[in-house]
């Protein structure tokens, strides 16, 4: 099965395609002659940018009338695939909505899905995926053996986004069939949470806290340090599980992949779950009182010390610089 056509699930926010969408379009362009995007909501306003990154057509599901995207978008894609013109592969960003679309589409088409993909190459007429396993210590490669289209859920920052200079994608409407009882979940209201600094997965500096902080209140110093460095605060799974900070803060296998210029891990031991989400950072600083903590194996600068002593001094020293 040669790879001729790839669909990319295009997500947008504030009238612009998300960075991951552009990363996937760039990867798709290098793997297939024809790249098409599938989107919903306000995505038509992104047709120019999607085209610039390689999409020739934008299949637009349009307004979802308050439905969560998973069911209607997957149903529309499945219907179009069955009607002919199916792509050989569908690349889907590993996001809240992307994963919903992937799961729904997989079950609807009865096709397996490969998730947590961090690399994709052409091999033997098909696609071979890369997955970082065991905290990134090993790389597993996999491929589909059955009938296409192959469904791939790809983690953010797996590819660099590069424009190709193409013209705007032609917008083509995609109809949603009747989804029966499965389409019953509707959004009543959307809430944006106040965020003062940069987004966690886009920040140049990320300061994360872990269980070594000891108690919930101590997380305030992580936020303060992140603020002083114009970075974003992050967290290990342990303190998200403990309810100290929301899930949105989590860096790791479950949670966000970050690749900032500097990653400061404070009181994080470095469980494989965490390492896989931050190992790609350009520079890593770790503060932990246990000198045998696995986090030190990936740190460019490791400080064996008490976060409760080192971090407040660091904060004071940065403040003193004005």
């Amino acid at each position: 099965m040669a790879i001729e056509k790839i669909w990319v699930l295009a997500e947008s926010a504030d009238g612009k395609p998300t960075t991951t969408t552009l990363e996937l379009l760039t990867a798709a362009r290098s793997l297939a002659g024809t790249v098409e995007a599938v989107g919903w909501g306000e995505v038509a306003s992104c047709a120019a940018t999607l085209g610039e990154y390689g999409a020739t057509t934008l299949h637009d599901v349009g307004d979802l009338a308050g439905s969560l995207p998973g069911v209607p978008v997957a149903a529309a894609m499945a219907q179009a695939i069955r009607a002919g013109g199916a792509p050989d592969a569908v690349l889907i960003p590993a996001t809240y909505d992307g994963r919903d679309v992937a799961g729904r589409l997989s079950a609807r088409l009865d096709r397996p899905v490969l998730t947590n993909v961090v690399g994709l190459t052409a091999a033997d007429g098909g696609l071979e995926t890369e997955h970082a396993i065991f905290g990134g210590a090993q790389v597993a490669k996999a491929r589909f053996t059955g009938e296409g289209p192959g469904l791939f859920v790809i983690r953010a920052k797996s590819f660099a986004a590069e424009a190709s200079g193409g013209g705007a994608a032609a917008v083509s409407p995609l109809d949603v069939p009747d989804t029966g009882t499965s389409g019953g979940a509707t959004v009543l209201a959307r809430h944006a949470e106040e965020r003062s600094g940069p987004k966690l997965d886009e920040a140049e500096v990320v300061v994360s806290g872990g269980r070594g902080l000891g108690e919930k209140d101590q997380y305030a110093m992580i936020e303060e340090l992140a603020g002083l460095l114009e970075g974003a605060p992050g967290a290990s799974r342990a303190i998200v599980d403990a309810g100290w900070v929301p899930y949105a803060y989590q860096v790791g296998q479950t949670g966000k992949t970050v690749k900032p210029t500097v990653y400061l891990a404070c009181g994080i031991s470095g469980a494989t779950q965490h390492l896989v989400g931050m190992k790609g950072s350009k520079n890593i600083v770790a503060i932990n009182k246990d000198q045998d903590a696995p986090i030190f194996s990936v740190a460019d600068l490791g400080v064996v010390g008490d976060v409760h002593k080192v971090v407040p001094k660091l904060i004071e020293a940065i403040k003193a610089r004005g």
Binding site: R143, T145, D306
Partner: peptide
């Protein structure tokens, strides 16, 4: 309907400088 084609060790990240506070 999928196969794991290989599992290999990832490129190890060099560990850096360690300072005891």
């Amino acid at each position: 309907r999928q196969a794991i084609t290989s599992v290999t060790a990832a490129e190890a990240r060099q560990s850096g400088e360690i300072v005891v506070d």
